[in-house]
């Protein structure tokens, strides 16, 4: 572990220096919230699949990273996998989020497992296999994680192409059993008169009553 804390730019420089063109589109997203506007830092980098493991190892050399999750985004022609890490936790206001985006072409959805360097990744790698149809090579436990045993093969719920959820598998529960022949209630424009629905009469107090007023009556 390295004791000196890198600035976000230094961190990116280190990656671009080591991996050259294989790291692209680095950006630092800084956001300040609250009254004092203390900034928090997110670092995004797009890397190729080949340097995924070296990049994580390098992150490990800088500071032991915490892997939050691997996410994915089906953008149509390719699948972008986001490896969401955070480093420098334990430093007050000093944590960086480091997000590696790994683009994969639809024809070649293979990723190496990172469980040998980050054992905690197993869960999320299993999930990526079943949800996105990505093959994780050398995964120590390739079972399904969330999907049931009888879920059809070749359907990946979070994909947006033809391997995603087909409409035939979707049941809109809210539509089920709704009465279709219900008579339409009469409408009187801007007139107050008693209706068949008893609810109507109670519409007196306007929406979102001020809590203080009601609080007083309540106590």
């Amino acid at each position: 572990m390295n004791e000196t804390i890198l600035t976000p730019q230094e961190l990116i420089d280190r990656f671009t220096r080591t991996f050259g063109d294989l790291v692209s589109d680095p950006r630092i997203q800084i956001r300040a919230e609250g009254a004092k506007k203390n900034p928090n830092t997110n670092i995004w980098m797009t890397i190729t699949r080949d340097i995924l493991k070296p990049a994580i190892s390098m992150l490990k050399e800088i500071s032991y990273p915490h892997l939050s999750v691997i996410s994915g985004w089906d953008v149509g022609e390719e699948l972008r996998m986001q490896y969401i890490f955070s480093i420098y936790f334990g430093e007050r206001h000093g944590e960086y989020m480091v997000i590696f985006t790994v683009p994969l072409t639809k024809g070649d959805l293979v990723l190496p497992t990172i469980t040998d360097i980050m054992p905690g990744a197993l869960f999320t790698e299993r999930e990526k296999q079943e949800m996105f149809g990505v093959t994780i090579t050398d995964i120590p436990d390739g079972r399904r994680l969330f999907l049931p045993e009888d879920f059809p093969e070749g359907v990946y719920p979070l994909r947006k192409d033809e391997t995603g959820i087909p409409d035939t598998m979707v049941k809109h529960l809210w539509e089920v059993g709704r009465p279709t022949n219900r008579p339409v209630p009469p409408v009187t424009e801007k007139e107050e008169e008693p209706k068949d629905d008893p609810e109507e009469k109670t519409v007196k107090n306007k929406e979102n009553p001020s809590p203080e007023a009601e609080a007083k009556t309540d106590e």
């Binding site: 009187t188 801007k190 609810e199 109507e200 109670t202 519409v203």
Partner: peptide, 10 residues
């Protein structure tokens, strides 16, 4: 927030 109330005429 309980059962919703709707003023159809308005």
């Amino acid at each position: 927030r309980g059962k919703i109330v709707y003023d159809r005429d308005g």
